[in-house]
């Protein structure tokens, strides 16, 4: 564990808490993409199947359980409890355009052709693009609530911090995982446009709106 990974994990946890808080406090999931959230639940489910097969640390197990539980908690709030507030008209990104190619790629490019490993690879690839329906939704409506933009910033920062973690691990532990690194870079790049808007607008106290 290094400082980059720890802050990355904390940013990830913070993002999830921010999203749950936004939905709970405003009693609304307006502006949140249910499709991105469904894919995140799928990401955690397929990646953390190793909870059953091997134990790493109490920290690892606890965080994994929190991530899985919170992703399904978010789905529960969005699709059951506050279903009426779900903005499905603006959540029109086609999930199959991401899930199908990602599934295909995880069969073709992986570290080991075994079920758990393919599912892990699938989750890594899917995570890298799972935010697209959310970003697409913001581009359709042209704006995002400030709390939603904080959520996205924390969520995007997490993988950027993981890149620093991988650089650190490469130099100090001789560890390198090409699949995770490439997917992590793709994931971070997808947020760049959002990061720019967030820093130039939200940090100056304005609402996140897209240029017309």
């Amino acid at each position: 564990m290094n400082v980059f990974r720890l802050t990355g994990d904390i940013a990830h946890l913070l993002a999830i808490i921010l999203l749950l808080m936004k939905i709970w406090k405003t009693r609304s999931c307006a502006g949140v993409s249910g499709k991105s959230q469904m894919m995140f639940a799928l990401v955690f489910t397929t990646r953390y199947l190793d909870l059953i097969t091997n134990f790493i640390s109490l920290y690892n197990t606890t965080m994994k359980m929190i991530f899985i539980a919170s992703s399904y908690g978010t789905l529960y709030l969005m699709f059951l409890k506050f279903r009426a507030t779900y903005d499905s008209n603006h959540d029109t990104f086609r999930m199959e355009f991401l899930v199908v190619p990602v599934a295909g790629l995880s069969f073709l490019v992986n570290h080991d052709f075994s079920p758990l490993e393919i599912l892990w690879t699938f989750s890594i690839y899917l995570e890298s693009v799972a935010i697209l329906p959310q970003l697409f939704m913001i581009s359709k409506t042209g704006e995002a609530e400030t709390i939603t933009s904080h959520y996205l910033f924390a969520l995007g920062s997490y993988r950027a911090l993981y890149i620093l973690n991988w650089v650190y691990r490469f130099y100090f532990e001789g560890f390198f995982d090409l699949i995770a690194v490439v997917a992590g870079c793709v994931q971070t790049v997808l947020y760049c446009d959002f990061f720019y808007l967030y820093i130039t607008k939200v940090w100056k106290g304005k609402k996140l709106t897209l240029p017309a």
Partner: peptide, 10 residues
Amino acid sequence: ACRKKAKDEL
């Protein structure tokens, strides 16, 4: 190589 170590990441 070293793939197994990634399993300690989240």
